[in-house]
């Protein structure tokens, strides 16, 4: 990692390369991607639970109609 950062520093010597800022950006990117997947996964399971609950309710009403 340090070797990579020193290569980037030397290549980008003409601009204001800030190693700490670059590492912060990497950290933000990592946390963000993970967070988005976590949110979407929780929404996915919430939808699955809603679908399961709806199916269960429909089945119960069908059963009760059949019994009647």
């Amino acid at each position: 990692m340090n070797a990579l950062l020193s290569v980037i520093s030397s290549v980008l010597g003409f601009v204001s390369f800030d190693q700490a800022r670059f590492l912060d950006a990497l950290k933000v990117a990592g946390i963000s991607i993970l967070s988005i997947f976590v949110v979407m996964a929780v929404v996915f399971f919430a939808v699955k639970i809603l679908q399961w609950a709806t199916n269960l309710k429909n089945k119960k009403s069908e059963d009760s109609q059949r019994n009647d």
């Binding site: 950006a25 933000v28 990117a29």
Partner: peptide, 16 residues
């Protein structure tokens, strides 16, 4: 993914 690739590249030149 593109958002974060650009974030990393842009952080080389610009404030966060």
């Amino acid at each position: 993914l593109g958002i974060f690739v650009v974030l990393i590249i842009a952080s080389l030149f610009l404030p966060l």
